[in-house]
Design a protein around this nucleic acid. Structure first.
Lengths: 243, 243
DNA sequence: CGCCAGGTTGATTTCGCTCAAGCAATGTGG
DNA sequence: CCACATTGCTTGAGCGAAATCAACCTGGCG
């Protein structure tokens, strides 16, 4: 279980490649040194859990590298994938600030290095550098936008549109635009996880993929996707409504 | 259109009955005076719009009294009701902080008095009193929790469970618990708006209500609801799954 | 009075789920 | 190295919940 662990000393915030992208970039050198000594780091293999829903929230977690999926489960055991978190993202700040236990669980989807910053360090930083709080506020505002968008989409859009939407979101980070309006992307997710992202069953995911193949909208081979005409994918976004 | 407007001078933050419940309660008297002079107030009648999605966001809006519905529409014209906002709630802070136009629209559901605080005043306050930002952060964190919960629920729960959930949420503010585990509530929403809250069509709302009537779970007459046995309503929350 | 918006009801359709089976790739233990 | 389980994915058949389409009813209001 602990085979992936790594001594904390091997990671340094000052040389962290993700530093520029984090909320922590507003910190002075002195403040960053606080983070540096107050953190512990660990590597997680795909499938390993960083925290579970219900776990006490003893600080925040910063992703140095890898890919993390944030999952949420209801009382019936159904699970969805709320979002993906990438290097530079800080996880668990919301539960931390609310003083709650974790509401969601976080699982490594790729080999990942996570730095955990303990509670007292974060509290101290928030009090001495107010702009850190504002950065988190901005981040929360963006997450909230996303979440509201998804409430709307999952309530009003059919599966095809939601899937097209997902592909277009993944495009930003995992897509390579071709010369003639085509697009290639290398999915970071399994089929089941894509299904969990748009709130459907794996079987429905399969069928939707097949339907996209048959409509010549996208071609899937393993985790590689080729979209011959981006416009046609865009057409799937809106439910055709004769207005 | 302007028949509900009221001179700004008639409203005073220091005597505002909602003051204790707002994010602004962390302000000193001097700071509150800034709000007092930097705000304009107006009364809105039911159906009137405070702001539309896409409108430039020139500050934040604080509810002194009444009830506001936050709506979001997709490109196909389908609309959902994201949440209700009550006296003391501040609206539009998210778009304000992100520097975006409004993402959602806000509509009065009851006669309401809204105080609008202009951009420069809010910026000044955020810079001189960091705890104001933290209050907003906490609020955003709670909204985010709600939104994520709703993503999960609308993806995994059937309509009956979502409606039961809605009734239980409304219970906090509009319900009166009876002596024998029963409950009476006075809905603040029309049927259509309840439908919009759980992302279904009005027809489905009607049928769900009738089904609750037939199952003796709740009795509806106009906007008054009587729930004879709260436990039976609770049973609807979870999808019965033989685990 | 006639109009209209909100609400209810019925008939029908459709989309996505459930249940079940099968298949390919991978791993494991004898 | 083979026999066997496991896991992720796909496919098919049938079902059921909610949407759609259409009609109608009600109360409020010009």
């Amino acid at each position: 279980m602990n085979n992936g662990s790594n001594p904390s000393t091997s990671r340094n915030c000052f040389t962290c490649q993700s530093r520029g992208k984090t909320e922590w970039c507003v910190l002075s050198d002195d403040e960053l040194e606080l983070v540096n000594v107050g953190k512990t780091c660990r590597e997680y293999l795909p499938g390993e859990t960083i925290f579970h829903a219900g776990d006490p929230c003893g600080g925040v977690h910063c992703i140095e590298s890898g890919l993390i999926g944030i999952r949420k489960m209801n009382s019936g055991g159904d699970e969805i994938l709320l979002r993906l978190n990438h290097p530079g993202d800080t996880m668990g700040y919301r539960s931390f600030l609310a003083g709650d236990a974790h509401n969601n669980s976080a699982e490594a989807l790729e080999p990942s290095v996570i730095c955990s910053i303990n509670e007292s360090t974060v509290r101290k930083l928030l009090s001495i550098n107010p702009s850190l709080g504002l950065r988190f506020l901005k981040h929360a505002a963006m997450d909230l936008n996303d979440a509201e968008e998804r409430v709307l989409n999952s309530a009003t859009l059919p599966v095809r549109a939601r899937f097209a939407h997902l592909l277009l979101v993944l495009r930003c980070r995992y897509g390579v635009d071709g010369a003639n309006g085509d697009l290639t992307l290398e999915l970071p997710l399994s089929r089941q996880d894509m299904a969990a992202m748009i709130g459907i069953r794996p079987e429905s995911m399969s069928r939707t993929i097949r339907s996209f193949e048959e409509g010549n909208i996208a071609h899937f081979s393993g985790r590689r996707v080729h979209i011959p005409n981006l416009d046609e994918l865009m057409d799937e976004l809106e439910v055709s409504d004769g207005l």
